[in-house]
């Protein structure tokens, strides 16, 4: 699997209800040490209910300037949340020639939505 298999994929709840798109992958460097750094573990998916584009990340940071770009983008991405990886039931199949179409991530029933803010 590669990161872009997941990025921009549509996110569905178990009953098929669409909840947004994967805009980013949350990684945590707490795996076993591999070389110098710990190996990044896929901790969860950052899901935006409105848009696939999240190139500036204002909705996840505490940066409020420059006004009005930062507040506008933050507003545009309001409702962005984090789902933990164990709450993911199915991911898009790579090289899936039998099921062409938009890539889809399906969440487990009863999944939890966490705050996606990054703390420095």
């Amino acid at each position: 699997m590669i990161a872009s298999d997941l990025l921009d994929a549509r996110v569905l709840e178990a009953d098929g209800q669409a909840v947004g798109w994967v805009v980013d992958l949350r990684l945590v460097l707490d795996g076993t040490t591999d070389g110098i750094l710990a190996r990044p573990r896929l901790h969860g998916l950052v899901v935006s209910p409105r848009t696939r584009t999240s190139f500036l990340g204002f909705e996840r940071s505490d940066v409020r300037s420059p006004w009005p770009i930062a507040p506008l983008l933050r507003r545009w991405h309001r409702g962005t949340f984090l789902v933990h990886w164990p709450d993911v039931a199915r991911v898009p199949e790579p090289d899936d020639a039998d099921h062409p179409g938009p890539a889809v991530v399906v969440l487990r029933p009863g999944y939890l939505r966490y705050d996606a803010t990054l703390h420095r």
Binding site: L27, V28, P40, Y114, L118
Partner: peptide
Amino acid sequence: APLLPEPRQPGRVLDARL
């Protein structure tokens, strides 16, 4: 519903795209 607070992680947090 309001989002749950994310617990503090034991290692450095990186977002892949960001």
